[in-house]
Design a protein around this nucleic acid. Structure first.
Length: 229
DNA sequence: ATGCCGGTTACTAACCGA
């Protein structure tokens, strides 16, 4: 099962054609898109992906310009209800598919991330024995996923470990590994796109890697690919 | 640790995003 997350950057605009080509050519079976917008770009992307038989789950928002998270999964997938704080309604969407629960997430800027972390770490009932939380966390570990210690909510990200979540990329590449999924205009790198798995997910992960070419080709984030056995 | 930058938009000023 091949899963990918990619931040579209402001909905993707006319880049969505190339983005759809990329996702389909690489045979993504489950797709989590962050900064998805319910506008004409979002509609084009939705048409391209659902034409292959995938169904769409999208986090709710009032405004079409709101950057939200969308999840595309096989037709057998079923929606899983989530109930975050109102201000995070557009930041999480979940489904059950092929015996696992997938939650797509798009965390806010700076300290505003805290409420969604609280929901994940304290209030969200176990969705399943095997849960994959994947998307743009906008944070990571100080001095490891970034050069310094500027990340907000790094402690809450780390606390996911106590909740049984394993950082699949770090598990595959080592405790001291460094790679960046986004780069600032000052050329500082940050690893902020993550896949966190519980239960049998870590042991079933046969590949977990970033594709940095997406930053060169059509967005400002690297894609994160996860293959589950 | 944002927004001086840069991208997007029921566009050309307002918004958003490390």
């Amino acid at each position: 099962m091949k899963i990918v997350t990619l931040n579209l950057r402001h909905g993707g605009a006319d880049r969505v054609r190339r983005i759809a080509d990329y996702l389909l050519e690489n045979e993504a079976e489950i797709i989590v898109l962050t900064e998805f917008r319910e506008n004409s770009s979002g509609a084009l992307l939705t048409d391209r992906l659902t034409a292959t038989g995938l169904q769409r789950f999208v986090a709710p928002a009032q405004d079409a310009r709101k950057n939200r998270v969308a999840l595309f999964a096989p037709s057998s997938a079923r929606a899983l209800p989530v109930s975050p704080e109102d201000e995070d309604a557009h930041r999480i969407v979940a489904c059950e598919v092929n015996g696992v629960a997938i939650a797509g997430v798009y965390f806010a800027q700076l300290a505003q991330k805290a409420t969604l972390f609280d929901y994940l770490n304290k209030r969200l009932p176990p969705l399943h024995e095997d849960v994959l939380v994947i998307g743009d966390f906008n944070t990571g570990l100080h001095y490891l996923d970034e050069p310094g210690a500027t990340f907000a909510c790094a402690d809450q990200f780390q606390k996911m470990g106590e909740r049984g979540y394993s950082d699949l990329w770090r598990r595959a590449h080592g405790e001291g590994a460094r790679e960046y999924s986004w780069m600032s205009s000052q050329r500082n790198g940050f690893r902020i796109d993550h896949a966190m798995g519980t239960g049998t997910i870590p042991s079933r992960t046969v590949a977990c890697y970033y594709d940095h070419d997406t930053r060169r080709d059509f967005t400002d984030h690297s894609a994160l690919w996860v293959t589950l056995r």
